[in-house]
Amino acid sequence: MTLRFSEICIDARDPEALGAWWSRVLDWPHHTDADGDVVLTPPPGAGPIWLFLAVPEDKSVKNRLHLDFTPEDQDAEVERLLELGARHVDIGQGEQSWVVLADPEGNEFCILAAE
């Protein structure tokens, strides 16, 4: 049996707004599918489709799974994301080489040090 990682599903109170935000962050196109879910389509080789699904509740605890991104310039990317509406969050990480941010609905993600 062979598995292929095809989608990552992200619960959202407002999938349209959150999907559009991540579309700007990643510069990936997005659309709403027939089920009303917001779909971000990565360029070839950039990973799975992101699917934003409507849920009635707000996020209430730290993510059990989060995304890490490696930029060319960490400081510039963190600044760009903050300007787009991300915010710094403290999940107990202490002083590290990565920066923990949250999207507008509070989902944590990390911006790693540039390679």
Rank of each mutant, 00 (worst) to 15 (best):
C9V: 05
G106D: 08
R13C: 10
E105W: 07
E72P: 12
V38Q: 01
K62S: 13
I8N: 05
A34Q: 13
F52L: 00
L101Y: 08
D27C: 11
D90R: 09
G36F: 03
E115N: 10
D14H: 11
A114H: 15
A113E: 14
F109Y: 15
G19S: 05
L82P: 09
L53H: 14
L82G: 02
G106R: 06
L67F: 11
E77R: 08
K59T: 03
L112I: 00
L18Y: 05
P42Y: 07
D37K: 02
Q96G: 04
W50M: 11
W50N: 00
I91K: 07
V55I: 14
G106C: 04
W50R: 09
E95T: 15
D35S: 02
D37Q: 13
L82E: 02
A76K: 10
R80H: 09
G36Y: 05
I8E: 00
P29H: 04
W98I: 03
R87K: 11
P43R: 14
N63G: 15
G47T: 05
N107F: 07
G92L: 01
E16I: 01
L18E: 09
S60W: 00
G36D: 06
L26P: 06
H88C: 08
V100Q: 09
L81W: 12
E79S: 15
D73N: 15
L51R: 15
A86I: 04
L101M: 10
P29K: 07
Q96A: 13
Q74P: 08
C9D: 02
P71C: 04
K62P: 02
L40C: 02
V78E: 10
G36N: 10
E83L: 11
E7M: 07
Q74W: 04
T32C: 12
D35V: 00
H31K: 10
P15F: 02
W98E: 11
H66G: 07
W28P: 12
P42M: 04
R24V: 01
D75V: 09
V61S: 09
R13A: 13
A34G: 07
S6Y: 02
D103Y: 01
P43E: 14
F109P: 04
A12M: 07
G19V: 03
I10T: 14
L67M: 14
W22Q: 03
I49E: 09
A54C: 00
M1W: 10
D103A: 09
G19D: 02
F5T: 12
E108S: 15
V99M: 06
V25F: 03
A76Q: 07
R4V: 15
A20K: 08
I49S: 06
I10G: 12
V89N: 00
G19C: 07
A113N: 08
F5C: 12
L82T: 06
D27K: 06
I10W: 01
L84T: 09
V89E: 11
L3K: 13
R4S: 13
R87C: 07
V61W: 12
G92P: 06
A17N: 04
P44C: 05
L18T: 05
L53T: 08
G106S: 06
Q74E: 06
P44R: 14
T41K: 02
R87D: 12
D11I: 03
P71Q: 07
E108Y: 09
V55A: 03
D27G: 06
I91S: 03
W98S: 15
G45Q: 05
C9L: 13
